[in-house]
Amino acid sequence: MKYLPISLLILALATATAFAYDPSPLQDICVATNDPNSGVFVNGKFCKDPKQASADDFLFMGLRNPGNTANPLGSKVTQAFVDQFPGLNTLGISMARLDFAPGGLNPPHTHPRGTEVLVVVEGMLLVGFVTSNQLNNTLFTKVLYKGDVFVFPIGLIHFQLNTGNTNALAFAGLSSQNPGVITIANAVFGAKLPISTDVLTKAFQVDKKEVDYLQAQFWYDNN
C-alpha cells in the first residue's frame, strides 16, 4: 500500500503526457507575431499584446481559391497553419485545403504532431493510412465520396489519390497549430545532404543504380 500514492502519481503523469499534444492555452488569445519586441514567447511564437489584437487576426481567407494542380503530383495543399494564420497560436488546431486534378496524388506523408480529419467536398478520393510496425504495417483504405469523412491518426503515414475523372476537393482539420509535414519520398530520397547510398540500398533492398536514380529525381513539394 505504501507504493500506491507513487503509482497513482506515475499513472497520472503518464495519462497527462498521453493526452498532451499542443500545450493548453492559459489566456484567451495569443496572436502570433514575428516581432520579438511586441510580446512574449509562447508555444513557439511571440504573442502580440492582446489589447492590440483585432478581428482580422482571427480571419484567414487563403482557403477561398483553388490551389494550382498543374504540377507533377496533380495536387495542391493550401495550409492554414499558425505560420499562415497567426490567430491559431496556442489554440491547438489548424486546417488545410486539398485540391486534386484527375489522377492527382497527395503522396504518402505524416504529420508528426497532429491527427488529421478529412472531409470530401467534391469528387472522389482513394485514401488510406498504414499502422506502425507494432500492428504489422496494416493498410486501412477507403474510397471517399462527397460528404464522406475519414481520420488519419497522429504520426501515421497516409495518402489521398483522386481516382475520379473530375477535379476533387477536400478540407482537413488537424489537432495542432503546427502539425508539420514529412513527405516520405522527399525526405528519404531528396534529403539535404543525401542519405548514404549504403543505408538506402540495405533499407530498400535494391542496388546502388536504383538508389542513384531516385536520388537524382526532382521531388516536388505540393504544400
Rank of each mutant, 00 (worst) to 15 (best):
L118C: 00
W219P: 00
M124Q: 15
Q160M: 15
Q134L: 14
D49G: 01
T138E: 09
Q27L: 05
G44V: 02
L105M: 12
P36T: 10
N222S: 07
E116D: 08
K208Q: 13
G103T: 03
A168V: 03
V82S: 08
H111A: 07
N65I: 05
S175C: 02
T166P: 00
A14E: 09
L139M: 10
T33N: 05
P179L: 10
S38N: 13
T163I: 15
L135E: 15
N34Q: 06
M1Q: 13
T141P: 01
F85D: 08
M95E: 03
S54R: 08
F81D: 12
A20Q: 14
G44W: 08
T166S: 14
V42Y: 08
N37H: 09
D83C: 01
L26I: 11
P194H: 07
P108F: 02
G62H: 05
A80W: 04
A203M: 11
A172K: 06
L139H: 04
V82R: 10
M124H: 11
G74E: 00
N137S: 13
V206N: 09
I182M: 09
Q177T: 05
I184R: 06
P72Y: 02
S132D: 14
N106Q: 14
V117A: 14
T90Y: 02
D28G: 05
A170H: 01
P112G: 01
T131S: 14
N186S: 14
N178I: 03
M95N: 09
F129V: 05
L144K: 07
D207R: 09
D49S: 09
T110I: 15
S24P: 04
N34M: 01
H109D: 00
R64S: 11
S196H: 05
A32W: 00
N165P: 01
V206D: 06
M95T: 11
Q52W: 06
G87R: 03
K45V: 03
Q160D: 09
F81Y: 15
D35S: 11
L135N: 15
Y145K: 15
H109F: 00
F189K: 00
A185L: 07
A191Q: 13
Q177I: 03
V206P: 08
Y21F: 07
W219H: 15
L105H: 04
D49T: 03
N137I: 02
